[in-house]
Design a binder for these strands. Structure first.
Lengths: 201, 201
DNA sequence: TGTTATACTTAACAGTGTTAAGTTAAATTA
DNA sequence: TAATTTAACTTAACACTGTTAAGTATAACA
């Protein structure tokens, strides 16, 4: 009875093929400039085949973003090991977050800016990957608060402030590349250190 | 020779009519979901007439955003009068910026997120309204630095950090309305105060 | 071997931004 | 006043878009 399994495997394979074709095109040409026909051409199937694997273009975007969030989560969780100095870990996590956004700017925008426009209100639901990313941030912040290093005692608010800072600088650097920014690394460090200093007791 | 002037006035009138129809539709239905034909219907002209006043859809977006930036600039400059306590003025300005974004969320996204996608790298050029908005921020920050209140002595970096914070929280509140945010006003205040505290000497 | 289910494609619909060519009416010139 | 030029606007079309209904061929099963 291996036939059914082989078929399922083949189906999953094509799904992945579609997904990676979509990601590549979305990232290189922008979500709006990618048509279902373009994706279909790339994988050498008819456009309608895609609809057998994804309900529509927004669903395709959704799946691409889920992958991005998984990548981000993996990147962050590799820093988790060292909890001796929670403030340093939080700072490093912030830096890793921003650098992830700058390394994959299109993926970042797709996930945190474009998708909310199409999937109103979704993306950070219970059990979602997005929530896990924010949970990671909560944990880091919680560690700092528990050790009495922070003035603020509210984990939620503190996490949200941290997120605002890194999200803000990431998007500004992506969206206005021609703006006369301070040297990039200096700006990133200043954003993180300023925020952490402001949170300290 | 009043005829020429009347004609010019009428032309300008139609231009404004197109612009405000476009803004209303962009804001209510989203840039991508608004077609040139929709705008044309609203003003009761043929679609091609729009092209006599704007080079293309992106130009229309551009003009709408320019208006938004002017509105933002006006809102901010009303706070300028009181320079006795520069830190308080900076804080108030930050709050006004965020509240502007939340009052006109679609306009804000159009200007600071959607437009950069279509007009790569533009929007903050020399002499532009966007630059004037940032100049306002520079002035506020400069005042704080001159009075020796801030640790940082670099006006540019400090301004950029401030911008990152307010831009970040504004977009997060707009894009993820279903996220379990801390009470909105508290979050905004905390973001501003944390950033300012982090910048202080 | 005949039937059913799976995987995929063709053709079409109603819509998109944009352009070239055409029309109509007003302003200018003779 | 009559002919001509100019300005403002429209019609029709092109090549595209996301998506669906209907059709086809092939593989799996009885």
């Amino acid at each position: 009875m291996g036939i059914k399994e082989r078929k399922a495997r083949e189906k999953e394979q094509l799904r992945q093929q579609i997904l990676s074709a979509a990601r590549e095109l979305f990232v290189n040409e922008g979500y709006e400039n990618v048509s279902m026909r373009k994706i279909a051409n790339k994988i050498e199937y008819s456009p309608t085949t895609i609809y057998l694997y994804f309900t529509d273009k927004a669903d395709l975007l959704d799946s691409v973003c889920k992958e991005t969030l998984l990548n981000l989560l993996n990147t962050l969780e590799q820093l988790k090991s060292d909890i001796s100095d929670p403030v340093e870990t939080l700072g490093k996590s912030g830096r890793a977050y921003i650098e992830f956004g700058l390394k994959y700017p299109q993926d970042y925008k797709l996930t945190f800016v474009i998708r909310p426009q199409y999937q109103k209100g979704l993306g950070l639901d219970e059990g979602s990957v997005g929530e896990k990313v924010f949970d990671y941030l909560r944990e880091m912040v919680s560690e700092c608060i528990q050790q009495g290093i922070f003035h603020q005692t509210d984990v939620e608010t503190t996490s949200q402030v941290m997120w605002s800072a890194v999200h803000g600088v990431t998007l500004l650097l992506i969206d206005f590349p021609d703006f006369p920014w301070t040297e990039k690394d200096k700006l990133i460090d200043t954003v993180i250190h300023t925020t952490i200093k402001g949170l300290k007791a």
